[in-house]
């Protein structure tokens, strides 16, 4: 049981850190380059701890992001829940891929995430230019090795 609560503490801490990175002030010109860390976290937890991390937690994390970034509530929630669901369906296959293939998959998953988010934002009257979808997605996918090296050791610590 202790390992369980340890795992969830770890999830909460990493999510709080990612939220901080989400709102870290960037100059206006670099705002497009901000990687989306929360989808990366959700993909990681869904791939490597699929029995403890689920769609509901991802939805909660997405809602937290919506509240913090001040966007439309439910946008990131639905997007994160969806990509977590896809990851949970295919974690065995994705885990055995090489790093380059994983990056490609992460690119596609984060792209789906961006499309969901922008679709919901569109309902509220914000039109997103194409680079808004492509550029952050690309940068986020390139951050995947970083997330792997940072988070993989935690699996040993929490026996997950």
């Amino acid at each position: 049981m202790t390992t369980h609560s340890g795992f969830y503490t770890w999830v909460v801490v990493s999510v709080l850190l990612a939220l901080l990175l989400c709102v870290y002030p960037l100059p206006a010109h670099y705002a497009w380059f901000r990687p989306e860390f929360l989808p990366l976290l959700c993909i990681f937890w869904a791939l490597y701890c699929p029995f403890r991390f689920g769609v509901v937690i991802a939805w909660g994390i997405g809602l937290a992001q919506d509240v913090v970034v001040g966007g439309v509530w439910g946008a990131h929630a639905i997007a994160l829940a969806f990509i977590t669901y896809v990851c949970l369906l295919s974690y065995q296959r994705l885990r055995s891929y090489s790093l380059a293939q994983q990056i490609l998959w992460v690119f596609i998953l984060v792209g789906i995430h961006q499309i969901f988010v922008n679709w919901v934002y569109g309902l509220d009257g914000y039109d997103a230019p194409v680079e808004m979808i492509i550029l952050p997605t690309l940068i986020t996918a390139l951050c995947w090795p970083l997330v792997l090296t940072l988070l993989k050791p935690s699996r040993g610590v929490w026996h997950v």
Binding site: C22, Y24, P25, A28, A31, V69, G71, D127, M132
Partner: peptide, 12 residues
């Protein structure tokens, strides 16, 4: 703070 999404022009 400034809303991080470049499309959303809101400040705290």
């Amino acid at each position: 703070g400034v809303a991080p999404d470049p499309n959303i022009h809101k400040v705290f």
